[in-house]
Amino acid sequence: MLQYTFRRTLAVLPTIICLIVICFFLMRLAPGGPFTSERPLPPAIMANVLERYGLDQPLHVQLWTYLKNIFFHFDFGPSFSQRDRDVNDIIAAGFPVTLTYGFWSAVFVLALGIPLGIIAALRQNSLWDYIMTGFAIFSQIFPNFVLAPLMVLTFTLAWGLLPGGGWNGGQWEYVIMPAVALGTSYLANVARITRSSLLEVLGAPYIRTARAKGLAERTILWRHALKPTLLPVISYMSPVFVYMITGSVFIDVFFSTGGIGQSFIDAAYTRDYSVILGLAILYSVLTFVLNLGVDLAYAAIDPKVRSGLK
């Protein structure tokens, strides 16, 4: 398992270098640059500025310097649009915020979605099942950008229960709405997948065997059915974890939480090359780490996968 993790980590390095190179050139292809504005700068000042940020160098030299700084100094360069801040600062400020509500959102999704799905499956075609299915449909037609304003209208403006935005160091009142708005549609999907997966597993021959052995229904559910039931949930969650972190752009903008989603938008508008690149790298590393985590979770549950890793 450790060796597998190590191999996967090594394999991801070339991928990330490719990604940096592609992003690097794609960005330069986009019209405009970090210092173009309505009122052009005088050429002398422009030349000065370009020189300061190394933008006067040929592209391949810029790329080389950039890669060198990352791999030898772990320095993602200065921000082109925010004076005196570099990319490391911006990530250090925004990422913990995104990670915090992203984490609680995932907890919300799994801790509620899986039990809901299990209950719906065990009481198939009962009131619980219908409520769950209704909720799943409801959350599909209310994606986070509709749900978030509705929540603010209800909980902030009408009832005055929760703050309508801000972060305040991540106090729980400030985390709730971003986390719930971000997670609800995934929660419904998790519940739905858990339900159908459990129903399928309960019909499997090995569950019949477990019954024929005289095991109690409780034992059958927890010991025999739960693990195989979770497999499709885990594969569903693999990209969702990433969506949750990257899809937080809207949440950051709407709730003014100050996460990296906000920085991403700002950087894209101002052609802040280094910030865009830095965040793209962060997202790809995150994608890799989460996918690896999901694969390891898969292996932990399924012995067949586990023996495949050896």
């Binding site: 499997a204 021959p205 090995y206 019949r208 065997t209 477990a210 024929a212 052995k213 005289g214 095991l215 025999h224 693990k227 195989p228 549950i301 399924d302 012995p303 067949k304």
Partner: peptide, 18 residues
């Protein structure tokens, strides 16, 4: 499973894989 036991058809699917 105690007084009366049953053996099923396909052993590839009647044992729990996990």
């Amino acid at each position: 499973g105690n007084r009366m036991a049953m053996i099923f058809q396909d052993p590839m699917v009647t044992l729990n894989p996990v």
